[in-house]
């Protein structure tokens, strides 16, 4: 395994009864990278994460963490992983500091370093001054998430896996958890799953999109954008005739396709265009649309497809491929 690869997953499959939760899942994560795991409910994100953390075993395929096989040496792998499960289960009747010390002992942090390791994790998660001696059951959702993350960070693991770390949090709490995750960049390899797509977009270096137990896309946001939502896109707000606008652009040799156009209030129309050429055509379009008697341009803005658009395009394509593969040919 290459020295800069922290996690390698190859053809991992797991079945629950007759249904495959994941099938031939493969991806790699480099050291110090923050990778987002995206997928609809039941896509197989949690199953993959549970296999990586050694709770579940795979039916076939292999996974390595830090060059160590998860199936061959699960205990060794567990020493290198900090895992925060979905819904972040915590014992309600323990104090934060007591719980973290208990977890540090279980994670085989040397006795003389336990105090320092717990303090460091609490400092990182901003628990040291606010919630140190509080009973976990009395904590707010945001603080509970912090305790879960502090637990995952204990013992300075090589890899941190977090399953939905921002679920159920308010925007302020999400922002502070995001800052916390960003602070881990370069120090630890982080895999996190979330349904909040802007969250993944802001925090992660790379994204793995999984759908119906298969990896449908993997790469940086830019690479995925190129693959699933290619071309420069623009949003135009104008009043006048749609046909005149398109004709004016054609006259100036600006090759564009209209994705959709809909009427807004006060006779305004909103049109989404995709340029057929790879270059920037925004300024050329503005020039072409100036001084037209039948069209008045109010605004023109380039549209960068967000992760939501990429996610929808990737999952749609995977569904189409699956249905296409299942449909018998005549």
């Amino acid at each position: 395994m290459e020295p800069n690869i922290s996690i390698r997953v190859k053809n991992l499959s797991r079945r629950f009864g007759a249904a495959w939760a994941i099938r031939n899942v493969s991806f790699t994560v480099a050291k110090g990278e923050i990778v987002g795991f995206l997928g609809p409910n039941g896509a197989g994100k949690s199953t993959t994460m549970r296999i990586l953390s050694g709770i579940l075993t795979a039916q076939s395929g292999s996974a390595w963490v830090g060059g160590i096989s998860v199936a061959g040496h699960p205990h060794e792998v567990k020493r290198r992983i900090g895992y925060m499960p979905e819904n972040n289960p915590l014992p309600d009747d323990m104090r934060v500091v007591e719980y973290l010390r208990f977890r540090a002992r279980l994670k085989e942090v040397p006795s003389r370093k336990i105090r320092a390791a717990v303090e460091e994790a609490m400092e990182t998660c901003d628990l040291a001054r606010t919630a140190r001696r509080k009973i976990i059951g009395s904590l707010s959702k945001g603080f509970r998430q912090r305790v879960g993350i502090a637990d995952a960070l204990l013992g300075d693991p090589e890899v941190v896996i977090m399953d939905e770390p921002t679920i159920g949090l308010d925007p302020h709490q999400i922002q502070s958890i995001r800052k916390l995750i960003n602070s881990l960049r370069g120090r630890m390899t982080v895999i996190l799953s979330s349904h909040i797509l802007p969250e993944i977009e802001r925090s992660c270096d790379r994204v793995v999109i999984i759908n119906r137990g298969r990896v449908v896309a993997t790469g940086t946001h830019e690479a995925l954008r190129e693959e699933f939502v290619p071309g420069n896109r623009y949003k135009l707000c104008f009043s006048g005739k749609e046909a005149s606008l398109l004709a004016a652009l054609k006259q100036k040799d600006i090759s564009v396709d209209c994705i959709h156009c809909e009427a807004q209030c006060d006779a305004l129309q909103e049109m989404h265009l995709i340029a057929n050429d790879s270059g920037e055509v925004g300024p050329a379009m503005m020039t072409a649309l100036q001084g037209l008697p039948e069209v008045t341009l109010h605004s023109l803005e380039p549209q960068v497809p967000n992760l939501e658009a990429i996610f929808l395009a990737a999952t749609k394509r995977s569904w189409e491929e699956t249905i296409g593969a299942q449909t018998p040919t005549a």
Binding site: H75, E76, I81, Y83, P85, L106, K107, E108
Partner: peptide, 14 residues
């Protein structure tokens, strides 16, 4: 039922 068994099994505990 609490889910804490999962967190327990993510440590190197047998």
């Amino acid at each position: 039922s609490l889910g804490t068994l999962d967190t327990l099994l993510t440590t190197p505990t047998s």
